[in-house]
Amino acid sequence: MELKDLIKPENLVYGKTKILEDEPMHYCPGCSHGVVHKLLAELIGEMGLQEKTIGIAPVGCAVFAYKYLDIDWQEAAHGRAPAVATALIRLKPDNFVFTYQGDGDLASIGAAEIMHACNRGENILVIFINNGIYGMTGGQMAPTTIEGMVTSTTPGGRNVDLNGYPMKITNLIAQLPGTSYVTRQAVHTASAARKCKRSIKKAIENVLDKKGTSFVEVVSTCNSGWKMTPVGANTWMEDNMIPYYPLGDLKDSVKGENSSEN
């Protein structure tokens, strides 16, 4: 079959969802953010949630997330997205509210806000991008930077005596009775990305069913910050990040029912 006969609308199996804007993303080549944005956009479209959705963008590389999904957005102060989302879901309980936060935003400066929003069991979805580094400001150490990892503020590698230990904040979140579904995923391969999409879908369903906070960590790459090629960063992530941050569900429950598996 000739290519021109194949490339027809009736043969389409994969393409861009309408919820994604045509605006090219500002992310570096190979950045995981783009994949996660796409998964969210696909789900918002497939689940018919565009009119209900209010997204909260963080401070960090995803600060411009509001440019890329065709939904209403608020851009929060650094770390405060869960507080912003709390007010929104309390005042507009029929909407679907999610925060999209990086590791610096969520686990460092916003550690209090995320803990308390999750502990109150706000019916929001939290997407947590963990690439172990501050991307936007030039590759500094994050709370999730793993031991020995070189960043611009740990040029000799993270030394736990000096810098403390990499924080498994998702494990802490899973212990809070306000959370319903807590999972750790990745998007570095097609199967991982498809699995991540199923997890986000389940998380959204839980939120819509008012089961409590749903929290999806995506172990991600920052090839620019890590000073690697995109493909090399994926390999490094598999070899170094995922052993410390193993993938899988940490909790699958309903708010108030403590069935944390960790």
Binding site: Q74, A76, R80, A83, T86, A87, L91, K92, A112, H116
Partner: peptide, 26 residues
């Protein structure tokens, strides 16, 4: 009317930001 005791003043004012951004009197 929603009334919520926040975890800090920092959270309070950002809740106000969120509510105000939805056009609510907060």
């Amino acid at each position: 009317m929603v009334v919520l005791q926040a975890e800090s003043e920092v959270a309070s004012i950002n809740m106000v930001y969120g509510g105000a951004g939805a056009g609510k009197k907060v």
